[in-house]
């Protein structure tokens, strides 16, 4: 509520302003009077400044009357709306010259004057939907033995994953560090306990499970790494053989 008007007046708390909250409401009224409207003399503003006072609503009523506010219904939000507009009118009439030059054509011109970032990265200027690009992705996939997905962008993601994991300089230097060791899971022969009656669905379910386990493994590895990092700070294993006693 009142967001654009408050912004125009450069009020300090715009987000979360609630006119129904008496404290916020009164604070805004005195701020408007002191900063923008300046109807009272400085010393006459005291009653309005006394935010905690029980008489504040009466003071406010007479303030509105003196400003010849046309709204007499007493609804807070409506009066505030008028007060804000009044303040904006005053602000405008104080600086007519400055504001009247700000026509839409002027604003547009200023905007165009700001320097535009021209990407030097040729990839940014590619048309990702062009036939050429699609063909390129697919032939790259073929080269890397990746099954192409109907959506070439997904294929591209798969390619990127493979390259960043397996074809980095370090990975090529030390192949063992990236190629998983151990025996392969006997995927076809193991019964996973669910039989969906359709071979393709079964395989897909099994693959999903394996992918989930893969994620879980990397999560567990990260947990272990965190524990080890903490251990570096806390660990101090001690033994004292003089305490030991073998029983009977």
């Amino acid at each position: 509520m009142f967001k654009s008007k408050l912004t125009a007046l450069e009020y300090h708390t715009i987000e979360g302003f609630n006119p129904e909250d008496d404290k916020q409401f009164r604070a805004l009224v005195i701020w408007l009077e002191e900063q923008k409207i300046r109807h009272y003399k400085v010393e006459d503003r005291d009653p309005l400044r006394d935010l905690e006072s029980d008489k504040w609503p009466i003071v406010f009523n007479s303030y509105c009357a003196q400003l010849s506010c046309p709204i007499t219904s007493g609804k807070k939000a409506e009066r505030l709306e008028w007060l804000l507009s009044h303040a904006i009118r005053l602000e405008y009439s104080d600086n007519i010259d400055k504001f009247s030059t700000q026509t839409s054509t002027e604003v547009l011109k200023n905007r165009q004057n700001t320097p535009k970032v021209v990407s030097s990265n040729p990839l940014d200027n590619l048309d990702f939907e062009s036939e050429d690009f699609k063909k390129g992705v697919n032939s790259l996939a073929k080269l890397l033995q990746i099954t192409p997905h109907p959506d070439h962008l997904i294929t591209l993601r798969a390619i990127s994953k493979l390259i960043s994991q397996r074809l980095t300089a370090e990975a090529i230097k030390d192949v063992d560090s990236v190629v998983p060791k151990g025996k392969a899971y006997p995927f076809d022969t193991v019964d996973d306990g669910f039989e969906k009656g359709n071979k393709a669905v079964n395989s897909a379910s099994k693959i999903l499970r394996l992918l989930y386990l893969h994620d879980l493994r990397s999560l567990q590895t990260k947990i272990n790494e965190s524990i080890v990092a903490v251990q570096n700070l806390t660990a101090n294993p001690k033994t004292d053989t003089s305490l030991g006693k073998v029983g009977r």
Binding site: I227, V230, Q231, T234, A235, N236, P237, K238, T239, D240, T241, L243, G244, K245, V246, G247, R248
Partner: peptide, 30 residues
């Protein structure tokens, strides 16, 4: 054996912590 005593030094506070933390205590202490 019956009546044997351990060689890892522990005081009453260590025990309280170990009872609450289980293996996390062994981990923390390394």
């Amino acid at each position: 054996g019956v009546g044997s005593k351990g060689i890892i030094p522990m005081n009453a506070r260590d025990l309280e912590e170990a009872l609450e933390m289980g293996m996390d205590w062994s981990l923390r202490e390394g």
